[in-house]
Write a protein that binds this DNA or RNA. Structure first.
Length: 289
DNA sequence: CTCAAACCTAGCTCCGGTGA
DNA sequence: TCACCGGAGCTAGGTTTGAG
């Protein structure tokens, strides 16, 4: 998230990450965090390995019942609580620095404004939203603002009043008032979307709009997969018409596609635009074409 | 050089409890 | 009966690092 959106969610209350339950930290953990924070302040920016070398926190039982590095857990918990932030990454690994968030909202009205701003951020990303999806999104904000968990119900009611609204075939749809869908022209473009792109994130809406079932199957045992390990939804103009599985072998991009109508569009423009999208992918991955 | 561990990432589904 | 709520249980693979 951007710094301004991050600021909307802080300062967070004295709670653990959601997976750890909502109890406050025990004294021992508080002490550990305090020592770690002093260490990070002293060093400026730290790599998790550097921290573990210094403290040797050992292992803890993780959310899944397995064993995890305790230092990693603690860093993550402190990041969530707002004591640290990720300054950058080195080879994907988070490099942490100390952080101090701003003051909490002065009164109830200011707090409601904050929450409404957060809801609007989500609405802008995911609109147009079926009612169930809007409820779900607002409810998910309990992870973003656990300190205001009890206020989310009323925030949903305000959102339903504030957002533009239409009822189509028995489903209520919501979107930000300032967005004018009529002015968004369909583009002659092929896009391979990620499984979590806002266009496809709400799987129920996906089915409503395009009439087929899309699932990410990375977590599905291989023999049970229907679309492929990491199928990317294939957007052509304003329709998601199929999916693609991409991989890199010996420095070359491999691609396999599936189509809901079992064959690609006969349209000549489609082939041209699909090639253009694959070229963009090669460029993004730094591959030779 | 190989291998294992650590770390990272953006999920899905089921089920029982609650309340209208 | 149904929507909502929240927790439990399970899961794939890529990259980097460092020990041996």
């Amino acid at each position: 998230v951007t710094r301004s959106v991050q600021a909307l969610m802080h300062p967070r209350s004295d709670t653990c990450v959601p997976a750890e339950g909502r109890a406050p930290w025990p004294a021992e953990r508080r002490k550990q965090a305090q020592l770690l924070l002093e260490f990070v302040r002293e060093r400026g920016a730290v790599h998790p390995r550097e921290v573990d070398d210094h403290f040797s926190h050992g292992t803890v039982r993780n959310y899944w019942g397995g064993s995890s590095n305790a230092t990693t857990h603690l860093l993550d918990a402190m990041l969530y609580r707002g004591l640290l932030r990720v300054a950058r990454r080195e080879g994907g690994i988070r490099i942490y620095t100390a952080h101090q968030h701003g003051l909490k909202p002065a009164d109830a009205a200011a707090r409601r404004t904050r929450i409404d701003e957060l809801v609007d951020v989500a609405a802008h990303i995911y609109a147009p939203l079926p009612g169930a999806c809007l409820s779900d999104l607002v409810r998910r904000l309990r992870f973003a603002v656990p300190q205001w968990h009890s206020e989310l119900k009323s925030a949903l009611e305000r959102a339903k009043q504030r957002l533009s609204h239409a009822r189509v075939d028995g489903i209520d749809w919501y979107w930000p008032a300032e967005v004018n869908a009529a002015r968004c022209a369909t583009q002659d473009t092929v896009r391979l979307l990620t499984p979590f792109d806002p266009v496809v994130w709400d799987r129920d809406r996906f089915e409503l709009l395009w009439g087929w079932v899309y699932r990410l199957e990375a977590y599905t045992p291989a023999p049970k997969r229907k679309l492929g390990y990491y199928a990317l939804p294939l957007l052509w103009r304003d329709r998601v018409i199929g999916w693609g599985n991409l991989s890199v072998k010996n420095g070359h991009l491999q691609s396999e596609f599936g189509y809901v109508e079992s064959h690609p569009p006969r349209d000549r423009a489609f082939k041209r635009e699909l090639d253009a999208e694959l070229d963009r992918m090669r460029a993004f991955l730094g591959l030779e074409s």
